[in-house]
Amino acid sequence: MWKKEKYFNGPLILPWIIPCLGILLWIIVSKTEVVPGYLLPRPLEIGKAGYSYIFGEAGGGPYAGRFLADLGSSTVRVGCGFALAVLLGLPLGIASGRLPYVHELFSNSINGLRAVPGISWLPLAMIWFGIGMKTTVFLVALAAFFPIYLNSAAGATQVNPLLLQAGAMMGVGRVRGTFAILLPAAMPHIITGLRLGLGISWAYLVLGELSGVPNGLGAIIMDARMLGRTDFIVVGIIVIAVIGRVSDRLLTVLLRSCFKSARRLN
């Protein structure tokens, strides 16, 4: 389709240029020793720390071999929180995009709450739910709710009324109209909302886990700080960046394989 693709493999190379440049710059900076090692560890140390974290044997050093267990518990937390946000945000968003009285009912409260930074919920959440799973799930669900709600609402508002009229004249009822016309037509916005929501889920996961849970990707970052292991802090950051990106791709692939509209629109 795209003729240039034959000669220049842009889509394959381009996304890696910035990460590679970043690592290169990092190597140069650490070689010059302008920044002391305890502030910015050398790439090699990070590599070692990361290797031990992911592949090391348990007990063979700090955090060795804990990756899979941490990933598992963090994924469960993000999964639960994100699922909760989708379950609430998507139907509510679609409804408030289509029904003016639902919009009026919620717009003040939701836009007010949206302005409150998530971190100010942390103390309250800890009092309500204690430390660990419930607090983290609460924070993730709360943070992911807003982009999902707002984008679904925008998507539902902007659906071409002609499509709904066309459905009505072909004898499509309200329920089928919602699933066969409204949702597919709003799909590009819904996808944006879900992707933003999932991205912010990982951010709030770390926040929830910073509160002192024993395991999880966020937990090792906080724990490493207390032990003065900057290398594991950086490993934690990189792992979350990679997992965030991977989960974003997985979400997109999943939606595309489930919905025609996700495959065929834009």
Binding site: L162, L163, Q165, A166, A185, R264
Partner: peptide, 8 residues
């Protein structure tokens, strides 16, 4: 106007 379902 075009009122076909663009995803079908």
């Amino acid at each position: 106007e075009d009122a076909l379902f663009p995803w079908l």
